[in-house]
Simulated assay, not measured.
Amino acid sequence: MSKKPTPAKRRVYGGIDAGQRVQERRERLLEAALELFATQGYQNTPIEQLCAAAKVTTRHFYEAFAGREALLLALYERIIREAQAVVREALQRPGLDLATRIPQVMGAFIETYVSDRRRAQVGVLEVVGVSPAVEKRRREVIREFAQVLEGYADSLVAQGLLPQRNYHPVSLALVGGINELLAEWLMSGDPSSLQQLHQAISDVMQALLLGGAAMAQHEKKVKKK
């Protein structure tokens, strides 16, 4: 009987196999993309420059990503996923009233998404107008953030803290407004105004949620009469 072929061994150099090397190159390309896309713009950054900054060859680039747009989408996805996780965690933190929770949520969001200006630059501005595929993903992201807020609002409805409403439209409007505030902050060229941005976004959220809480209390009083 003929012997079954043995699986090919993965080549290992310096204790690192081929898969690990691809992952390391991928990480270096993501870091290079964050710096270059944020500082000189996605449209002004060719693949050759990304490769030089990441210290990889063009062949190695295409082992990690299908193209420059795929690299942008991967970077955008990472930035968004980290921001969404932080916001969800802050919204679910127990023992906080609405007035305390809102500034904490915005502080957590700004810490992960805005304090490194490069992340906000890519996540808010550099993904605009790239291609139909990137624009589709950008719109999906806005809806995803809106769904996070909508879910939180629905949980407050269940607790009797907000009136029964469809909170999807207002959540979508709120996320769109926050996105515009971020764009304005990025384009103003004034990094010292970060605290003002934090306050502005917190004020908008408080107007929505605390106003809704006041409406819920008013409706309860009306029903009792």
Rank of each mutant, 00 (worst) to 15 (best):
L209G: 00
R143Q: 14
C51W: 02
P7Q: 00
M205T: 11
M205N: 14
A70M: 07
D17R: 02
A90T: 05
P191F: 04
A85F: 11
E111Y: 08
I47Y: 05
L50V: 04
A66M: 09
A85M: 15
G19P: 00
Q121E: 15
L156P: 01
E48I: 11
G14M: 07
L194S: 09
L208Q: 11
T45L: 04
C51Q: 02
H168W: 12
V87R: 01
K224M: 14
T100E: 15
R165P: 00
L182Q: 02
R101H: 03
E63A: 13
L71S: 00
E126W: 00
A90Q: 14
L181G: 08
G189Q: 09
N179I: 06
A200H: 11
I16Y: 04
A213T: 09
V141R: 03
R11C: 12
Y42Q: 03
G211N: 03
R21N: 07
Q164C: 04
C51K: 00
E89A: 15
L75R: 07
A158D: 13
A53V: 05
I16Q: 12
D203Q: 14
H198M: 01
R117T: 11
A64D: 05
Y42V: 01
Q49R: 15
M205R: 07
H198S: 05
E140I: 09
Y13F: 09
G129N: 07
S202D: 13
E24H: 15
G123D: 02
L162H: 01
V130M: 04
K223I: 12
V12K: 04
T58I: 10
G160A: 01
E35L: 09
P103W: 04
